[in-house]
Every structure is written in structure tokens, then in C-alpha cells.
Nucleic acid binder design. Sequence first.
DNA 1: GTTTACATACAGTTGCGCATGTATATCAAT
DNA 2: ATTGATATACATGCGCAACTGTATGTAAAC
Lengths: 218, 218
Amino acid sequence: MARRTKEQAEQTRDALLDAAGQLFFSRGVGGTSLDDIAHAAGVTRGAVYWHFRNKADLFEALYERARLPQNDLLDGLLAAEAAADFLPSLERLCNDALGVLVADPARQRLFTILYLRQELVAELAAVIAARRAAHRDLRERVIARLNSATLAPPWTPRSAGFALVALWQGLVNEWLAEPGQFDLAGVGRQCFAGLFASLAGSGEAAAPPPWALPEKSA
Amino acid sequence: MARRTKEQAEQTRDALLDAAGQLFFSRGVGGTSLDDIAHAAGVTRGAVYWHFRNKADLFEALYERARLPQNDLLDGLLAAEAAADFLPSLERLCNDALGVLVADPARQRLFTILYLRQELVAELAAVIAARRAAHRDLRERVIARLNSATLAPPWTPRSAGFALVALWQGLVNEWLAEPGQFDLAGVGRQCFAGLFASLAGSGEAAAPPPWALPEKSA
DNA sequence: GTTTACATACAGTTGCGCATGTATATCAAT
DNA sequence: ATTGATATACATGCGCAACTGTATGTAAAC
């Protein structure tokens, strides 16, 4: 082989990232050699070292390619002035985020790597640390925003924020750990419905939100 | 060095397991060589291969050494006949489990490895799969047990069980990811108080359980 | 005397980083 | 439009380091 056109080069770069995503997911980052990636993409290690400096650089590129558009939505919601319907909006956002995840296998693979396979290889350290900081920041902002919302006892902004983030994270982890073993969006909708009903104080008969779909059976 | 007495041999075995636990935690399972472990325990790789067949065998021994006594408690609670105070008992059990974890650094390290560093190395595959199955089984049993409890709407046994397990898991993961950055037992107590109050339908003023400690500030 | 509890020594493999080869795309100059 | 020069997009090959598994040595416990 010899030199290829620019579009072809971009295609091989994408192919390398795709192959890396699949292999990192199925064999782990530390368990995947650059030769594995190159072979899966139909090239050799030379191509890898042309497009990326090393495995860490490759992984960072993979991370950058999957930035969550959902983050912008949350930013907007948190930045908005105190509105009476903050809690319903937040509930809808939680459910939407689950929907986005369910519909995007590539994101599921990356989340699996980032959430429950935080290998302590040097390649991942920077990305893991950045994501952890972002996560912590998000949680704190949710708590801060909940300070200006009316919560039913015994909830406090702090406990409610922790419960929300932990519930979302726990559900996602549970689902990623046993892929497709239950209906994440449906279960999540029920759980968030219960939690938000409790937060709002409507303990008894909360009217189902208009976007609620008919409940799937187990 | 030459042959040592049986008690000394048992000590070196324990020292190897201790060293492995520390190193697996700080550098990852794939990132620590058997030579690292042996050196940290003050012996050579020969000792490792005497006590264990390989790294996988060593890790399984490490896992066996830290079986949760809490599991037995939960088994008893789930097996007991339907009692009116099932929900309060379950709430106490959740808090107790958090307390056990907070007090045991070795268990924290192992949980960190098992929960958020599921490296896909062959050494871990068996243990990870076993733990995942056990976790799934526990969730299903909690749901089954909730079928004979009275839950306030909109909760169902299924959504309540998922929410409980996900909340516990999410809180623990959050805390393990940022070690010591918040008071896990205190935050957990608040979150579970809110969730269980919602499950029981006492939306307004739930009397604090007698074992509740004074709330720590952030 | 035999087994035990290691230490030491010896291949064998694997993967990384880099250096080098090479054919072609790109482009300026004619 | 053709041509030459150069940069590009890889492929190939090499040395090196690390790690594993095993084989063997050995002194003390039993």
C-alpha cells in the first residue's frame, strides 16, 4: 500500500477509533494491543502511530468523539432561573438521558469502560480523573439548584441531590453490567416517578406525567 | 533463606494476600506483576507460586477472604416470614451495610476493584461473573420479598427493588470513586430515610428511627 | 531421610517505541 | 497539461524491556 487520499485517511482514522472502541469494550483497554486495533481496522501498527502518538492519545480521541449533548441540556436547566416546574423538568431530563443511552451502543460501550471498568493503566488516568471531576461538579450543581426548590420532608437538597445522582448512576451501572437484561428506560421511569413524587411531597396519587408511556411488563 | 515453620508459612501467605490487595487497588490487577506482590511481601516470586497457582488463583483467594457477613443477615431477613416491620428492618440493614463498609479499608479496596474497576483480564473473569450473578440474585429476591409488603403508590415491588439496589450501589460507587470526600453513612442514612418514607407512604413527617444518629454537617 | 517453603535461574512470549522503507497524492513550476 | 519535488499515509523491521511459567537448587522443619 502507499499513500491514500485525505478522505481515505480520515476513514482509516475513524476505523481505528471504531475498532478501538469495540476491542476496549470486549477485551479491556489493558488487554488490547495496538496491533489488535490495527488488525481489526484492516491496517498495521504503522497507521496507528501515524494518527495517534500512543494508546493514551487514542483513548482520549475516543473520549472526545462521544461528548454528551445531554450535558448541554442539563447546563441550560441548571442555569435557568428558579422555575416552579424545575423538578418535573429534571425528571424528564433524567428519563431522556436514559433514552439517549439506550439508543446508542457506542455510548454504552464507552460508558461501560468509564463507569465500571476504570482500569488503572496510565492510558486512562487523565480521562478518568477528568470525568470524575465533571461528575462531582454536576452533583454539586444539582444540589445547589435544589436549594431553591421546595422539597417535602425528610428530604434536604443535599440528600435529594445525592439520591438522584446515585439512583441514576446505580441504574445505569446495573443495566450496563447485565446488558439488555431489563428495560432500562421503563424501570428508570418508574423509579424516577417514585422518587420525584416523594421529593415533591405528592405521596399518594401522583398524576402520571403526560409523556409517560404505557408500562411494559417485566 | 530456608524452610520456615507452618505458622510462618501461613504468615507469608497472608502477607502475600495483603500486599496483593494493596497493589491491586493502587495499580490495578493487570498493572501489578507477581514480582511486585512478592517484593512488597518481602519474598520472591517463588513463594507466590508455592502458595498459589497463578494470579487468578491469588485473586480468588483474596475474594474468598472477604465474604460479606452482611449477606447472611440479608438472607435471614429475606427468608423470614412476612413481618409488618420488614421495611424498617431493610432500612436498618442498608445503613448497617454502609457502616460495615466504612469501617473496613480492606473491604473498600476489594469493592473498588470489583465494582468500578472490572478489568477484563482473564484473572478476574470468573470472580466478576460470580459476583454479578450473586448481585442479580439478591435484587430479584428483594423484589420477590417486596411483593408481600405494602407499598405506597406509585411504587411497585419491581420499581422499589430496583430503586433500593441502585441507590445503594450508586451511593457506594460515588463514595469509592472519591474516597472520603463525603460522609457515606450520614448521606446514606438521609437518602434511605427519604426513600423508605416514600415506600411506606408516610410522605409528610416520618418519625426518625431510634437508631438515627445526630446528622453530621456537610 | 524426606518433605516443605521458599530462592534462583532459564527460556519463551508479548507488546511498545522508533527507525526506516515506499508508493502515491498533492502541488508548484514550467 | 505535464513534470518534477515534496509531503503524506501508511507498511515493515528491529531492539528492548517486562512478565510469565517452570525447572532446579537448598536449607531447615518434621
